[in-house]
Design a protein around this nucleic acid. Structure first.
Length: 542
RNA sequence: GGCCGCGUGGCAGAGUGGACAAAUGCAACGGAUUGCAAAUCCGUUGGGGAAACCCUUCGUCGGUUCGAAUCCGACCGCGGCCUCCA
């Protein structure tokens, strides 16, 4: 049963057939870095991470191009860009309303600096967009590592896996030149205000991914098309590749003057640069009909226009089949995350970032499980109750897994019939369009009927955790005094310890009224306590 | 207005023609344990019946079928996109 996935391009669940099953190429549209990524962003990134981990797992079978089936483990080269150029004008260009996001970020940082809420040791000049971008990029990578995004862990050794748009501008210029040479793009305007547009009518498959057609796009019901910009274009759907604009904060020299690249160009360049060894953007050519990469993912909001435009650029420049509009063999788009049943927004007070939650004592493992355990192709509903459910599941899994999981040993993975059955159920669920909920159910059933620490349960759990990636994550430090064990990252508190000593004395004297009163008092102070082995007391947030 | 995804029990969320009153987890209830809690473990959890069994349920209303949560149509609701740097 080879892996099947929903392909946005065909709107069908189909077998995933990479060019080379031993080296699968995967590109994910990464974050913009003018603010901290929120849990909705991370849901999408974690869905990609889960897919990548499953493909790498010994449990995963893939159909190969000759019709056979190959079994893992295998290597996935996963690249995710950092968009540090896209939203950095110093004014509202094109008649758009609102304020530039990098300016907002700068002001926010300025205020944090003044009020002293910026973390210690951070030096960032809020007037420098590059420094702002680096600041948020660092925070993104930190969050990503804590959540077990494998790519973020790897990119510490190999930074090319997380390329920055600003480092690839020369490639974008070469790609734009190629598109002009091949008739897929044109320049309008006079020196000083030149603009390069992609010519959508030259690319018949434009609209294939999103289900749009050029006719419908012409109607432009979104209401965000600037009339001024439209007049210069051959077709309303033509999109920007380069804009000459000396006022732009971040700008580069190009054959079309000092300016900045279009938003979509970066991904066409960085996907090829990161995934096709030795390929040069200026010379790469693929025969008709051959896709460039195996997998491409991004949030559902990327389907149009971003990925539609990427397809047009990449196929146009590199000569992949323009009639079919391939570029990637499989398009993977996780849906949005709702919070407590509603769209997440700062004004509703239901807006969360991983670091907010970590600061409140949430374990990275619980957040990761909560964000991955629902099917990627439906809207997931994030709730604090769900987060608590995930936490409890993980604790049960940990008991069954024994102590700290080490490296898996796939060869000996299924010694007992129960473990073999469990691994098969897990794999079977994951092969069918990544049915994580069913896979998690298999884990729970297995854990439920397995004695803790017995047989090869720890072993089997290690194998599946290479995919789910929760048990191996860091846990909040415990901090112990003689009597108290502070968990969930809670700092030691002398007044709590004093109360606990008092309570222990009351209990020894069988004065239970007093010991219960102390427990209630601690609860009012915001602490839940629980008697554990050795006469100690575990203290957590209420 | 157009294109796309989704709508399941108190909650989250599987299930896409029969083995379904519907996986799994949580919550709730009963029991073991505990000085009492918490945690853990066992059991129950749509309604009726001791039971074979019967009745009502998978957004709503219709339809196809021997048979529908699952297929078709309409409607309602939720979510995303409809572009040029938001």
């Amino acid at each position: 049963m080879p892996l099947r996935l929903h392909n946005t391009l065909t709107r069908a669940i189909e077998e995933f057939v990479p060019e080379d099953p031993a080296r699968v190429t995967f590109y994910t549209c990464g974050p913009t870095v003018y603010d901290d990524a929120h849990i909705g962003n991370f849901r999408s990134f974690l869905a990609a991470d889960l897919l990548r981990r499953f493909i790498e797992s010994p449990l995963c079978e893939l159909r190969d191009a000759r019709g056979g089936v190959s079994r893992g483990p295998r290597r996935v080269v996963h690249v995710m860009n950092i968009t540090d150029v896209g939203h950095m004008t110093d004014d509202a260009e094109g008649g758009e309303s609102g304020e530039d996001r990098m300016a907002v970020a700068g002001r926010r940082l300025m205020e944090a600096k003044k009020s002293g809420t910026l973390p210690a040791g951070v030096t960032v000049d809020p007037s420098d967009p590059y420094q702002i971008a680096r600041f948020y990029e660092g925070r993104f990578k930190e969050d990503a590592r804590r959540l077990g995004l494998k790519l973020a862990l790897e990119s510490e050794r190999d930074p090319t896996l997380q390329p920055r748009a600003t480092d690839h501008v020369p490639g974008m210029i070469r790609l734009t030149s190629r598109l002009i040479e091949k008739g897929f793009a044109y320049v309008v305007g006079e020196p000083g205000s030149r603009v390069v547009y992609f010519r959508v009518r030259a690319f018949p498959a434009y609209g294939r991914l999103s289900g749009n057609t050029l006719e419908k796009l012409r109607e432009g019901e979104g209401g965000r098309i600037s009339r001024e910009n439209q007049s210069a274009k051959e077709h309303p759907a033509d999109f920007l590749l380069w804009k000459e604009d000396p006022r732009h904060v971040m700008k580069w020299e190009s054959p079309w003057g000092w300016g900045y690249p279009g938003w979509h160009v970066e991904c066409s360049v960085m996907s090829v640069a990161g995934l096709i060894p030795g390929a040069a953007v200026g010379t790469l050519t693929r025969p008709d009909g051959q896709a460039l990469i195996d997998l491409h993912s991004g949030g559902e909001d990327n389907i149009f226009p971003h990925h539609e435009c990427e397809i047009a650029q990449s196929c146009g420049a590199f000569n992949a089949d323009p009639a079919r509009g391939t570029f990637a063999r499989m398009w993977f788009h996780p849906r949005f995350l709702l919070v407590e049943g509603a769209k997440m927004s700062k004004s509703k007070g239901n807006f969360f970032t991983p670091r907010d939650l970590f600061a409140r004592g949430v374990e990275p493992a619980a957040l990761r499980l909560e964000l991955i355990r629902t099917h990627y192709r439906g809207n997931a509903n994030f709730t604090l109750q769900g987060l608590a459910d995930s936490q409890r599941m993980i604790e049960r899994w940990r008991r069954a897994a024994g102590t700290t999981p080490g490296a898996p040993d796939p060869a000996g993975a299924a010694r007992s019939p129960a473990a073999a059955e469990f691994l098969a159920a897990f794999a079977s669920a994951m092969h069918e369009d990544l049915n994580v909920a069913a896979a998690v159910a298999a884990v729970n059933s297995f854990v439920g009927r397995t004695e803790p620490g017995v047989a090869d349960a720890p072993h089997a759990l290690r194998v599946i955790d290479e995919v789910l990636g929760v048990l191996s994550l860091e846990r909040p430090a415990e901090s112990q005094t003689g009597i108290a064990v502070f968990v969930g990252g809670l700092a030691q508190d002398a007044s709590v310890v004093a109360k606990l000593d008092e309570r222990a004395a009351a209990k020894r004297a069988k004065d239970f009224a007093k010991s219960d009163a102390i427990r209630d008092e601690l609860l009012r102070m915001g602490f839940t306590i629980k008697d554990v082995a050795g006469g100690r007391v575990e203290v957590s947030r209420a």
